[in-house]
Nucleic acid binder design. Sequence first.
RNA 1: GGCCCCGUGGUGUAGCGGCCUAACACACUUCCCUGUCAAGGAAGAGAUCGGCGGUUCAAAUCCGCUCGGGGUCGCCA
Length: 535
Amino acid sequence: MVQATGTIARRKPGAENPNMPTGDVELVVESATVLNSSKTPPFEVADEPPADENVRLRYRFIDLRRPRMQELLRLRHKVTHIMWDHLEERGFLHVETPILLKSTPEGARDYVVPSRVHPGKFYAQPQTPQQLKQILMVSGVERYFQIAHCFRDEDLRADRQPEHTQLDLEMSFVHQEDVHAVVEGLYTRIVRELRPDAKLITPFTRLTHEEAVLRFGSDKPDLRFGLELADLTQVAAGAGFRVFESAVQSGGVVRAVAVPGCADYTRKQLDELIDIAKSSGAGGLVSVAIAEGPASIDQIADGDVRSPIKSHVNLDVIKEIGRRTKASPGDLVLIIAAKEKVAAVALNNLRNTLGRRLGLVDDNLFHFAWVTDFPMFDFNEDQKRWESAHNPFSAPREVDVALMDQDPGRVHAQQYDLTCNGWELGSGSVRIHRPEMLEKVFKIIGYTQQDVDIRFGHFLRAFEYGVPPHAGMGLGLDRLCALLGGETSIREVIAFPKTQTAMDPMFESPGPISGDQLEELHIVTVTPPDATASS
RNA sequence: GGCCCCGUGGUGUAGCGGCCUAACACACUUCCCUGUCAAGGAAGAGAUCGGCGGUUCAAAUCCGCUCGGGGUCGCCA
């Protein structure tokens, strides 16, 4: 680091450098001082990509000097700035909520902080300010938002960190559409201001959860390309192919996607697709390649078809598969027979892989969608009981209220996700504001009065004093920034992220604490704090 | 918890049973030259190939375990 004093002078003719912003001038140095010296950096600030991610994280202070990282830091700053601006203009109030709270058994595993003053008791860090913001609605904060830090102790992914930031918001006296309008307006503005080069589809697409799963195999579909799925369950039921029939008999589905122009895929290419299906949990993948030549799917002959099921089913079944998947000669049909959720995961993975591989993905397009009408309850097969699909405070759709008693599985919640390009960017719902409805939900998920008191007593006390109808959502800031920046991992938009094993290679956190600290916190560890170091 | 990929001087890679006494590029050190700006020239230092164990006459290379990183399914809103 050098401080130089001198005079700026025009460069001599011929010595200018058009590649530099300051290439026409130079500093004639009169005095110079070394302010600070530096060791040789572990990698070059100019390189892109600079080094292995582990090295980058260990030397994050150098990694962050890179122009790209500075750009991403600035992007994130601007996103939150627009959020503040936009919401403030619309009457929202930023309220901070505690990050030392209390564990509730719902949802993800909590990060926990021991209490010194209360032996044997622990704070939990909030997975989201959900209950706090609902309490703020009771308190008369009609429009709340917060750029909130959230924590969950679950396994990490490219789009999941143990601590992340969310734009949390909640509004009183509104319907679902009012929340959508605010968020859609905000996100449209963010994309237009920060990515003016990009294409943005407005208004945002709307899909029901059921439609999203049927057509794309995902509740966060990448809508930048087609490759829509088709349901073959009925065709497969009587097709004469045992894998299909047994899947259907055991309550599963048979679904497929037609991949244009891929009928000539080699054994190796097909095996790769089978691997994707298997690693997604499916037993396998059935392919039907329809050779180019015939004018339409109805005119194909036996010799046009290449498929392992060819000898088990007759040509009419193949034609019906072709018609349902809207395949043309020259296409490759990929069929999964499995439980509905597994089939969806597998086909979604296939669809995304092929969409990218076939060049169908426009990197410069933001295709947002609202996915609505999520199922309100899931049946827990192990425990043979209903549980809340989201959290017990999401309200059922008005039209479904009558179904709650006889068929909880058919009840849809006024719950919605915001998705974009295959990312889930946020989730929210219209909340239940009537105690009777909450009681009904608790009854369905089998909570006794005691369960309810332990888990939500503090919260329900607030509900006894007049709750306005309210709705809101939480939106992942890290994912939004990664998406805007064209990054595939949220680690790129977090200044100091953690590795997949939740460690920080720079701080070497988590670290041990002293015996004194443990004692003060009334904690006895089963594994010594330095076990990893010594064994 | 399962599966997959990766781990070679400071950094990025090559090598994938013997030709490896481990190569290349950038970075680094010293010297030379100098209107340079991705400078140039000369010389040089730097890795027991993540670790441990095994197979083999011979292992960076094959096998097992382990550690670290990444992706993903489960999990997770």
